[in-house]
Design a protein around this nucleic acid. Structure first.
Length: 337
DNA sequence: AACTCAGGCAACCGCGGGTAT
DNA sequence: GATACCCGCGGTTGCCTGAGT
């Protein structure tokens, strides 16, 4: 078949020869690539412009880093993928010298398997239910597995009327958006506080509106980092008067404002503070529930790429909902919070 | 040595968005 | 506004290579 852009010409396909590489490299080095469609003709190549562009971007470009991925790069990929999903080009931007194709291949051939081995769903980065784990272990089709897991999990839904909430316990099963569960060293984490890590393991909260799942991957997943998330005080998310989950959660925060303002049910007011923690300047975001500021805190670490967050939150909604059934945008996540 | 198989990688394909006409 | 073209992206395919038998 071939690209429509080159269907009119007789073009060569398949692997590039060293001679072709040299022609393309020399041409681009001298003339640049203002218009890829003219490059093959002017460079004397029997290729289509698309193919030339791909070859240049993925192989010939001088600043490309070759060789295997470092542990740090792997970590970045996992962290960013947790937030962006399969947006390889965006992920690659966080890895100088790496191409989207390279990142994608590395993910599919290596990281994905590692996550599965750790019992994590590579799509959601959440723990897979035991049933699916055993299916994975049995060698079932992993894609079906992921499909199944994403259609049954709604990881970021909080609503009111948590009739079963046990106030004495102080917390119950909260859904923390995976996008906000990134490891402290790179992205955003909830402030670790009074809730013991063990208590957060495999939490589930159900009420008439919502199933919230909270998977504690801290112990099993080095890639996710230790205790990536923690609930804040017991009153977080809970209306003091009723003990119910709040319908309208307000995120306070300066920089975060622009990144949440597109979400229908999130209102952002500015008021954040900057504190020093170890060597990092940490911006503390306080979540306000209803009219009162509650104890939920977020830390936007200094290295966090807010642009990335900006570009990712909405798609993440679709991503996490698996695209099936509910339409899956953040709007539907009832993050009335 | 020959064969099989799985993993890794490079390239292709189709689609969507942006821009020019 | 409609159409054509170009570019960039993500998904997929197919080839190559090395390990295992």
């Amino acid at each position: 078949m071939g690209h429509h852009c080159c269907s009119k010409h007789k073009v060569k396909r398949g692997l590039w020869s060293p001679e072709e590489d040299e022609k393309l490299f020399n041409y681009i080095t001298v003339h640049g690539h203002a218009c890829w469609s003219t490059v093959p003709r002017e460079a004397g190549l029997q290729r289509c412009g698309k193919s030339c562009r791909l070859r240049w971007m993925n192989y010939l470009k001088p600043d490309l880093k070759r060789g295997s991925f470092s542990v740090e790069e792997e970590r970045v990929i996992i962290d960013v993928h947790r937030i962006l999903g399969n947006r390889w080009a965006q992920i690659a931007k966080h890895l100088p010298g790496r191409t989207d194709n390279e990142v994608k291949n590395f993910w599919n051939s290596c990281i994905k398997k590692k996550l599965i081995a750790q019992g994590l769903d590579p799509k959601t980065h959440n723990l897979m239910p035991a049933s699916r784990l055993s299916a994975a272990a049995a060698g079932n089709n992993s894609d079906e597995l992921f499909q199944s897991s994403t259609t049954t999990t709604v990881p970021f839904t909080i609503s009111s009327l948590n009739r079963g909430f046990d106030r004495a316990k102080g917390f119950d099963k909260m859904a923390i958006p995976p996008a906000l569960m990134a490891p402290p060293q790179s992205n955003v984490a909830l402030h670790e506080s009074t809730v013991p890590a063990a208590a957060l393991s495999d939490l589930h909260c159900q009420d008439s509106h919502v199933l919230m799942s909270f998977a504690n991957a801290s112990s099993s997943s080095p890639s996710l980092g230790p205790m990536n998330y923690a609930a804040a005080s017991s009153s977080s998310f809970i209306n003091d008067q009723t003990g119910n989950f709040m319908d309208d959660c307000v995120w306070d925060g300066g920089d975060m404002e622009q990144h949440f303002e597109s979400l229908n049910h999130i209102e952002v007011v500015g008021d954040d503070e900057v504190v020093q923690r170890k060597d990092e300047v940490v911006q503390v975001q306080t979540c306000t529930l209803g009219n009162e500021k509650q104890g939920l805190m977020m830390e936007a670490y200094c290295g966090f790429d807010l642009e990335m967050m900006d570009s990712s939150l909405l798609p993440c909604g679709d991503f996490y909902s698996g695209g099936g059934g509910g339409g899956g945008s953040m709007e539907q996540l009832q993050w009335h919070c």
